[in-house]
Design a protein around this nucleic acid. Structure first.
Lengths: 199, 199
DNA sequence: GTCTATATGGCGATAGAC
DNA sequence: GTCTATCGCCATATAGAC
């Protein structure tokens, strides 16, 4: 570990904020996680709010740029859908607390969404519109493609955000079985979506 | 308004807790909402934690007993599914912040789930198992019914919890259009689910 | 740059008058 | 039962030594 102090703080903040949110996180906790003194956090980032914004912006960007990469790749729309579902379940699996983190923060302070879209190069609007259009191309059913996109997102995200409840109810709180269930879900969701966009 | 002081406190707490969660809510805020002094909250409920537990337990129960009513009604499994989707979208529409509230709290402190199930008469385990069995009866596809149940829940909940993002991206932040979209979604989700459980 | 010590404010909770 | 005043704690933030 020869990363700079600022990087250490940032990475520690990332872990804690994602787990506990802006309100639940404590500066002392982040300092402990980074292995240094609390005062240094303010030296580098001035305030908790600043530190949080830096983290949120990056995470938000990462989760949308992933879609972007898929959408601009040179494959058929159907393949894009397949790649999207595969890579998104992988992404969420590696960052299981991120979806809930994002959902919480955009509801807690809807302004961050606007500022985020204006201040930075992130354009979730365009990205989701593009995605919407890709789905539309494949959608032979009579259903509005927005309903399909939103259903897909719900199907992807819900098993992660509601994990404590679902794991207890359907899997006797056995974590490994639930992980296995999530892995097999990749194929399941793909099949479901293709069924939905059939004529 | 001739309701008792205790009721006023409870109802105010309900509104504030659902909106801001256990950590985000302030006792002063609840007192203001109830139109009385902060000290009275402690007089009637002793601590913030107690007040919160009372609220959470009721809300959690309400959201599961709704399923229960449907499941024990004397109609076909297919009709139960229809009624479930209809009444659940209605329920969430009238309480749009509740799903996220529940999700947050069971993730923040998974213990509440266990204590809730032991201390009270609530048995989400049995309820969701029953629901699972009903879906199974209708499910002619080769897919594990648990995947269907979880997908259904995701499809129902996601448009509400991700509303700020989706409304901005797909509906130019127009609240009325989004409400209309949610209304038409009732039929859409029903059709989607029946498509998924086809052979 | 990094630490210790401390200032400042807010929140949950209680004491005590009425 | 209901209020005002206040305690005690903890979290963010800063001052200042090194």
């Amino acid at each position: 570990m020869d990363s700079s102090t600022e990087d250490k703080i940032y990475l520690a903040a990332r872990r804690i904020f994602v787990l506990k949110g802006m309100e639940g996180a404590r500066m002392q906790e982040i300092a402990d996680e980074a292995g240094m003194n609390k005062a240094l956090l303010h030296y580098y980032f001035r305030s908790k709010e600043n530190l949080f914004k830096a983290v949120f912006k990056d995470i938000f960007t990462k989760f949308f740029s992933k879609v972007k990469d898929t959408l601009f790749s040179n494959i058929t729309s159907k393949d894009k859908l397949v790649v999207f579902i595969d890579s998104y379940i992988d992404l969420i699996s590696s960052n299981p607390y991120v979806p809930q983190f994002i959902i919480n923060e955009i509801n807690r302070d809807p302004k961050v969404l606007k500022t985020l879209m204006f201040e930075s190069g992130i354009e979730p609007q365009k990205i989701l519109e593009l995605f919407f259009n890709e789905v539309k191309l494949e959608n032979s059913s009579e259903v509005d493609s927005r309903h399909i996109v939103i259903s897909l997102m719900g199907m992807l995200v819900f098993p992660f955000v509601a994990r404590p409840l679902l794991q207890m109810i359907y899997f006797n709180n056995d974590s490994e079985t639930y992980d296995h269930f999530l892995k097999e879900r990749k194929e399941v969701v793909k099949n479901m979506i293709f069924k939905l966009i059939e004529a």
